[in-house]
């Protein structure tokens, strides 16, 4: 039995403790904004926040998050996240959009910790998030723009 908070709501799951958080969120709880891409923390499509830090849900066993607070793309809120989402849409960053939940989770974590990121900061925070459509040019622009709007 694992108890945790997901997007502000308490959940108790009676599942295999080895089940990755990704499949617990998607298949057991039914929130599908968090995506599956690789299953080995190589692509970042499954990025969620665990106690505020970006984590790859595909490599996080549910048994290890007892008591944690999890936020997914459906639950992010606050000025940073909302600015990131708004700028992302305004700049038409997404193409297919499949990886973008993970991109936004990583970008929000970056801007929360580093309000005025350099290009190198962006590279190191975002290079774990693959985008096969290669929207990287706009991801970079959107992070800088969100930073400006947030007064970073």
């Amino acid at each position: 039995m694992v108890a945790f908070t997901l997007n502000g709501r308490a959940h108790t799951l009676d599942v295999d403790p080895q089940m990755p958080l990704l499949w617990a969120i998607r298949d057991v709880i039914g929130l599908t904004g968090t995506k599956f891409g690789c299953g080995m923390a190589q692509c970042g499509a499954c990025t969620v926040h665990v106690d505020g830090a970006p984590v790859r849900a595909c490599q996080t066993e549910i048994g290890n998050i007892d008591g944690a607070s999890i936020t997914t793309i459906e639950g992010i809120s606050g000025k940073v996240a909302e600015t990131v989402q708004k700028v992302w849409a305004e700049l038409d960053v997404p193409q297919c959009g499949y990886c973008q939940s993970g991109q936004i989770m990583s970008a929000t974590a970056l801007l929360t910790d580093t309000p005025k990121p350099s290009n190198d900061d962006i590279d190191s925070a975002m290079s774990g998030n693959l985008c096969r459509c290669a929207t990287y040019h706009r991801i970079r622009a959107a992070i800088h723009e969100a930073s400006n709007r947030l007064g970073g």
Binding site: K35, D92, V93, G97
Partner: peptide
């Protein structure tokens, strides 16, 4: 003119085939 469909790709709402839901769906 901006894409009409960008916001659903920034909030997790756009469904892809992996997200199809229905009663009794097996994997």
């Amino acid at each position: 003119l901006k894409r009409y469909d960008s916001s659903g790709k920034t909030n997790g709402k756009q469904d892809y085939t992996i997200d199809v839901k229905m009663d009794g769906l097996l994997t």
